[in-house]
Design a protein around this nucleic acid. Structure first.
Lengths: 336, 336
DNA sequence: ATGAAAGCGCTAACAA
DNA sequence: TTGTTAGCGCTTTCAT
């Protein structure tokens, strides 16, 4: 428990000795090599069971020159977005007998060092946009398989969605269908490339229509808590616009969990939109108008690339505007 | 220009050759060994820089017989609870020059296999309660350093909080101060030991007062989405109790983001409580009455243990009841 | 101050 | 069918 020194693990040599064979034979048995005769195999297997031997992944990795591991670098292990991304990556990792190792850089003072360590122990790396300086990404890409997801890179292949166009379409709906004029973006644009693109799309739609932002972007993170904080700030400043365009669903959920309690009805007093179309978006009340993104697919494609499949150097996946009620539309899809 | 081996990473031998020294000397340089004379050191460092050499973590691990890696096994990488746990572990990992590798078992068909792989590549393991069959945990504990967090184990040390007592205290407050009689638990008790303890505490408080549950536990997950789903179910069944005792804050937040939109005021029509006291709990509206848990501390203690510190075989950390407004108390802390 | 060489746990030619 | 042996990349005595 506290102080018992774990017995040292048996090595392939221990088994060889125990079974009275060579290490090569033991290795063959652990690989189900058909060449070993049944009787020998049994003897070896017995020794393995008796001593509780399991081949060292480290030793194997060194010999194979591959680790059967896929690394994923994310800003943090927070919300559903990254969970889904990982899930997508897992789906392809599983069918290739590869395990996944995740590191979150936001928690890490020395993110670069941690990622370099990770790179050593993996056959490929998925890096989320905005987690590392781009020259570091380039360096990593030069010495290994790297795919950047939701970000830009010139030395590595990227897998993204066109968040800019999607955000513009969403904002256009708010302006044209509902006639909102005072709209404000929630989320720190420079937080990640992803968010930057969405903000740009928001601006695009405004500019196209000669509209101005109802204020600076609310510069906060991308989690539920930040949505709640933003809601309180806006309430305290008595400065609610017609519509709050949130950088993702979680922010919007934070709004839903705060604004009503503060006396603001959604969407009657203020419209709120999300981005991502997480499962939650269709369940909260009012249901969230948002943009659907194939997040798991993003992870799956990236994983395939990072594991050696040939993929295009720049893959862009489709998004889809999802109109529900938080923008002011009625459940039938028509504006109020 | 040494462009002979282009694709493959340079090894310590390449550097040795390039600098005209032995591998031992290169190794000394990478370890800042004071015995190498300045001139030699410079020559080696030059070669290292020129070829872009970085010692292989794999090779080192094999030689050192340690990996400088800490593994964490969680059900999933979803919400803030696990993010905080990891953060706590990171804080001690960082000061020991250790990196963290996380795997989520819920995403994994072959969780056991994945964890075994992980165990190979780490010096210690933190395992969240309920993620693995207990005999597997025992096996892992026998061959390495394992700490179980928020769960039970006889072969491994555990780090927990007394969720049962805390839940009983919280429920007692609801019953005694507010006089609620119809109370219902939200969350699947058998989902994790943690949740089971909280449900037990809830039952304890009820039993003590001769009260009955206002219905079976609402058997859902522990995420925001499940809270929203539960809210809709209860609404659709027109079966809202006096108070909803949620297994964690996220569930409660899902309620806050759904119930008001469905026409139910919190706490006027129905009280809602959380568990964990996430940052969000004090910001959403109404602010959440909940139980504070030192989650990061949980992670930190577990990490210390998993990395070799002597810790008690059973550590229990303090919780604290946090009364805010979602239970019906006024901001001043008095009941309505 | 530096080098030679023996491991660390495993795999895979090559021999026998 | 099985064994011998040379790596995989690195560290670390032990010599020199």
């Amino acid at each position: 428990m506290a102080s018992d020194s774990p017995a040292t693990r048996p090595t392939i040599r221990d088994i060889a000795r125990e079974a009275g064979v060579s290490v090569a034979t033991v290795s063959r048995v652990t690989h189900d090599d058909p060449r070993v005769v049944a009787d020998t195999k049994r003897r070896v297997q017995d020794a393995i069971d008796r001593l509780g031997y399991r081949p060292s992944a480290l030793g194997r990795a060194l010999s194979y020159q591959r680790t059967n591991t896929l690394g994923i670098v994310l800003p943090g292990l927070g919300g559903p977005y990254f969970a889904q991304l990982i899930e997508g990556a897992e789906s392809v990792a599983v069918e290739r007998g590869v395990v996944i190792n995740v590191v979150g850089t936001h928690l890490r003072p020395d993110a670069v060092g941690a990622v370099r360590q990770l790179a050593e122990r993996t056959d490929g790396l998925i890096i989320a946009g905005g987690t590392l300086p781009s020259d570091e990404v380039a360096a990593l890409a030069r010495s290994g398989r790297v795919i950047v997801v939701a970000g830009e890179a010139d030395e590595a292949a990227t897998v993204v969605t066109d968040g800019r166009a999607a955000a513009a379409e969403l904002t256009g709906h708010l302006a044209d269908v509902h006639g909102y004029r005072r709209m404000r973006f929630v989320g720190e644009p420079s937080g990640s490339p992803d968010t930057a693109w969405r903000y740009q799309g928001f601006r695009d739609a405004l500019d196209q229509r000669g509209l101005a932002e109802a204020g600076e972007p609310v510069r906060l993170g991308l989690d539920v808590r930040s949505g709640a904080v933003a809601a309180r700030m806006l309430h305290d400043a008595a400065d609610l616009p017609d519509a709050l365009v949130c950088a993702n669903d979680e922010l919007a959920i934070g709004m839903l969990a705060t604004l009503p309690g503060l006396g603001h009805r959604i969407p009657a007093d203020v419209a709120v939109t999300g981005f991502d179309d997480q499962a939650l978006a269709g369940i909260a009340s009012p249901r969230l108008t948002t943009v659907h993104q194939p997040i798991a697919e993003l992870g799956a494609r990236a994983a395939a690339g990072a594991l050696g499949d040939d993929i295009r150097s720049h893959t862009v996946l489709e998004t889809r505007l999802v109109i529900r009620e938080s923008c002011g539309c009625s459940p039938e899809g028509t504006p109020d």
